[in-house]
Simulated assay, not measured.
Amino acid sequence: ARVTTGEWSDTLREAFGEFRPPTGVDGQALTIESDTLEQVRAKVEQFIETNGYRPRIVVGKPGLDGHSNGAEMIAVAARHAGFDVIYFGIRLSAADIVQSALEENVDVIGISLLSGSHNEIIDQLFEELENNNAKDAIPVILGGIIPTPDFESLQSKGVKRIFTPKDFDLMAVMNEIMDVINAQKAN
Rank of each mutant, 00 (worst) to 15 (best):
D26N: 06
L129M: 10
N51P: 05
V76R: 05
A78V: 08
E33C: 09
K166C: 03
G6W: 11
T148S: 04
A29Y: 13
L142F: 06
V44W: 09
D179P: 05
L142A: 00
I138W: 01
I57Q: 00
P139D: 06
A1H: 10
T23Y: 08
M171K: 01
R41Q: 15
E127S: 08
I162F: 11
A71L: 03
G70S: 14
V98M: 05
G144H: 04
K43P: 03
N133Y: 10
L30C: 11
I48Y: 12
D150K: 13
L30Q: 06
I57A: 14
N69C: 14
D123P: 06
I162M: 03
R79N: 05
K61M: 05
L129R: 02
F151R: 00
I121C: 03
E49A: 14
S34P: 10
K185M: 04
V58H: 09
F151Y: 14
A77G: 11
G82Q: 12
P165E: 06
N119P: 04
D167V: 12
G144P: 05
I138V: 07
V44I: 06
V76I: 13
A15V: 12
I74H: 02
F163A: 13
E127R: 00
A1R: 00
Q99V: 10
A15M: 08
A137T: 13
G6T: 06
Q124F: 08
Q46V: 02
S9R: 11
D96G: 01
A29E: 15
G70N: 09
P21S: 07
L113G: 02
I86W: 04
Q99A: 15
E152V: 12
A15F: 10
T5S: 11
T31V: 14
L92M: 13
